[in-house]
Design a binder for these strands. Structure first.
Length: 552
RNA sequence: GCCCUUGUAGCUCAGUGGAUAGAGCAACAGUUUCCUAAACUGUAGGUCGGCGGUUCGAGUCUGCCCGAGGGCACCA
């Protein structure tokens, strides 16, 4: 609808001779008595024009020209707001587009073929996925879906490292458990991986090899075995949530030189050295961030000669630019919050446009079971496994609960609520609206032989004018704007809220307006409206990665 | 001690410098001869953590204080 109003206002400003560099903001007032849409442009422009806002608003209104039957009323209100009331007939006419476009309704061309990269999950294969990772995974997946609806060519990437120190410890942990299987007495250090899965991997090795690995001091076989098993389990868990990646980027690539060339890591050092941001002391190589006003320099190469995580991170981001991505989104958990500023600083120094990088940070998750809040802690056994949560509440509830709060909010995952089969549970409420429409349409075909999904008599929608119908129709038209808002804010939560309110409006319509019992044309019109609602629910569910049950 | 996020109704949370601060759930009171009552309607519920500042206007920006979560490694 913004596409409809924005040009109208722009033209009015132009013909009224009002010049302002303030952006035209169109919002939907919380209270319907202030119209369907409203703009505060007169308030914003008043200051620079040195005019009274209300007078200015009045003048803008006089220069607004539009087709009859589109806008029912325009008024100046409050301090100088301009409020628009759409004509019901215009709303219902517009709903026809939902049916005409079907699954394509809500798609946009913001991306226009541009290449986008979304990096998410990116857990190293040291253990099964935790609930906290799940939130980021779902968030990233939804953001990727949103980008796709806007015409971006999206790559979903998983960045991992199977070479570092943590992986060494992992291999060592498996070896120790293996020795245990062989009946050796061992001392298992607290610094090693405590989870039960380590023992399971060791047992598998014991079953395959017996005691023949007993004397093997090289841990690479143990490490490899652990990595393969754990990665398989991670991917299986992600698969249960419909989270998929197109690309798995192994950090190790950045360490190795190709054809006598420098490694990607070394190139970063060279380039930063050229910019005079590299210093060496204490046996290590440092990124001189003190020159940027920070308290301490940051280590890039440890005195052991190994790069610290920061160096490959910078090199990795450079590959994103080199691979030609116009837009990049990194989804991180709150524990990585201190990681990215240094990376961005380095990229800026090296001349990359860091405005193309968007950081989406999600706060942590606590779960509530039987009214008891359980705090999540990483690296402490396996009390917070994502798999267990999916077993408990199902994939749809897991996904939806992760994104139904803003990513900045410290999510409280109420496991009992997620399992409830009633409207208290938002998953259920959304599913029910969809299933109810499916049932209604089935019944409609049975009783009247009319199928709104194959009929083209969409213009019958114009017969509808009751408040419940018009409000539902209006909500449907907001879908494209909601998609854009969700993407702009990198916040799928907006979509969840929108769909919830849509479901609510449908239930009210269903309650107030008899459908199959109505006069033939009205019946058809209402079935069209129902079909359009179902279409939007489906389009929204697809973005959120939630199923659309046909019956319940 | 420093940095990031956060504090809004009983609970879980929206709120993009603008109008009398909203929603869902819970609570209370109603609605089914009728397409799924797995639903709908209505009522009540607030010192926007606290104290200052910026301005025509602050829940929103800013300073300090208090509470919560996270981070402050030659771990990732």
């Amino acid at each position: 609808m913004h596409e409809f109003l924005l040009p109208l206002i722009q033209k009015a400003l132009l013909s009224a001779g009002i010049i302002t560099d303030k952006p035209i903001q169109i919002e939907q007032p919380a209270d319907k008595k202030f119209g369907d849409f409203s703009t505060n442009i007169a308030l914003l422009a008043a200051k620079e024009c040195r005019r009274n806002p209300r007078e200015l608003a009045q003048e803008i209104i006089q220069h607004l020209t539009f087709q009859p039957d589109t806008i029912a009323k325009i008024e100046v209100a409050g301090a100088g707001f301009i409020n628009f009331y759409l004509a019901p007939i215009f709303i219902m006419r517009s709903v026809e587009m939902v049916l005409d476009n079907g699954g394509g309704y809500g798609k946009g061309s913001m991306g226009n073929g541009k290449k986008a990269l979304v990096e998410y999950v990116s857990a190293n294969p040291t253990g099964p996925l935790t609930i906290g990772r799940g939130r980021g995974g779902v968030l990233g997946d939804c953001i990727a879906n949103l980008l796709e609806t806007q015409g971006y060519q999206v790559t979903r990437e998983y960045y991992f490292n199977d070479a570092g120190r943590q992986m060494q410890i992992l291999g060592e942990s498996v070896r120790l458990r293996y020795l245990e299987c062989c009946g050796e007495a061992i001392d298992f250090p607290a610094t090693h991986y405590q989870g039960e899965y380590i023992g399971e991997i060791a047992e598998t090795l014991y079953a395959e090899h017996g005691k023949e690995l007993l004397e093997m001091m090289d841990i690479s076989l143990f490490k490899k075995s652990a990595e393969t098993t754990i990665f398989a389990s991670i991917r299986q868990t992600l698969d249960r949530l419909q989270i998929r990646h197109d690309s798995f980027f192994n950090e190790h690539k950045l360490y190795t030189a190709e054809d006598g060339d420098y490694s990607a890591n070394q190139k970063v050092i060279n380039a930063l050295r050229e910019k005079d941001f590299i210093v060496e002391y204490d046996g290590a190589t440092w990124f001189q961030t003190t020159r940027l006003g920070q308290e301490k320099d940051k280590v890039l190469i440890k005195s052991s000669g190994e790069p610290s995580y920061r160096l490959p991170d910078i090199a990795y981001h450079i590959t994103k630019f080199e691979r030609g991505f116009d837009m990049m989104v990194n989804v991180f958990g709150a524990d990585h919050i201190d990681e990215y500023p240094d990376v961005l600083e380095a990229l800026k120094i090296l001349g990359y446009n860091t405005e193309r990088i968007n950081i989406a940070i999600n706060q942590f998750v606590t779960t509530t079971v039987d009214g008891q809040t359980i705090k999540m802690s990483t690296r402490k056994g396996n009390a917070d496994l994502l798999d267990d949560l999916i077993d408990d509440v199902g994939a749809d509830a897991t996904r939806l609960f992760f994104i139904m709060r803003g990513k900045d909010s410290h999510l409280n995952f109420d496991v009992d609520l997620a399992k409830k089969q009633s409207k208290e549970n938002p998953v259920f409420y959304l599913h029910y609206a969809h299933a109810r429409i499916c049932s209604l349409l089935r019944m409609g075909i049975q009783e009247t032989g009319f199928d709104p999904t194959s009929s083209k008599e969409h213009q019958l929608l114009r017969l509808l004018s009751s408040p419940a119908e018009v409000q539902l129709g209006f909500a449907l038209l907001n879908f494209p704007d909601m998609v854009k808002t969700s993407l702009r804010m990198l916040e799928p939560q907006k979509m969840v809220e929108y769909l919830h309110s849509l479901a609510e409006l449908f239930h009210r319509f269903y309650q107030e307006c008899p459908i199959l019992k109505a006069e033939a044309d009205i019946c058809k019109a209402r079935l069209f409206l129902s079909a359009a609602t179902r279409q939007i629910l489906r389009n929204g569910f697809r973005i959120l990665g939630v199923s659309a049950p046909e019956s319940m």
